[in-house]
């Protein structure tokens, strides 16, 4: 096996999970791709300190750190608009644990949330409609949309 194939092997083995994490943490797919490419570029330049026995854990941490750094550098209004964390220290749990919790949230939304809360959640987070657009589509007031979304989020929180 030559040297190039070693890097290519790493890339092919881990790219899928890495791009998934980056797409989950960032709102912009192009940016997510850049982050993952950059992790491998740094590996190539040896600017990362390899600090453990597990390559995958290392690569995933590198992706998460790069994503969080990217978010930190965004304008506050942009961060808020895309619902990124605003208070710094809220992301220190293991990556697997975070991703498992996200799966759990999706299962709750799809299985345990009633109407119209669920539709409102989906229109907001899947179709990314504004609250005004949701209100118009469902023929209710914006205040009612807020109320249902509040209920929905609180219910998810209580079920996690």
């Amino acid at each position: 096996m030559n040297d190039k194939s070693i890097l290519e092997g790493l890339f092919r083995q881990h790219y899928g999970k890495m791009i998934h994490l980056a797409r989950t943490l960032l709102h912009d797919d192009a940016e997510a791709q850049d982050v993952v490419q950059d992790v491998f570029a740094r590996l190539l330049e040896n600017r990362y300190q390899m600090t453990g026995s597990k390559t995958e854990a290392y690569l995933m941490s590198a992706v998460r750190n790069s994503c969080l750094n990217y978010i930190r550098k965004m304008q506050l209004r942009e961060r808020f608009k895309h619902l990124h964390p605003l208070n710094e220290a809220d992301d220190s749990r293991p990556i697997e644990e975070v991703l498992t919790e996200l799966d759990r949230i999706n299962a709750i939304v799809d299985g345990q949330i009633e109407e119209p809360q669920r539709t409102i959640f989906r229109l907001r987070f899947d179709e990314e409609l504004t609250f005004q657009e949701i209100a118009t589509r469902l023929d209710m007031s914006v205040g009612a949309v807020y109320k249902y979304l509040r209920q929905c989020i609180n219910r998810i929180k209580s079920l996690i």
């Binding site: 797409r23 989950t24 939304v109 987070f125 998810i156």
Partner: peptide, 15 residues
């Protein structure tokens, strides 16, 4: 924080 998690959860599903 829960909104942040919800947004991530759905981005994860889309991804």
């Amino acid at each position: 924080r829960s909104l942040t998690q919800a947004a991530r959860a759905r981005r994860s599903q889309r991804s």
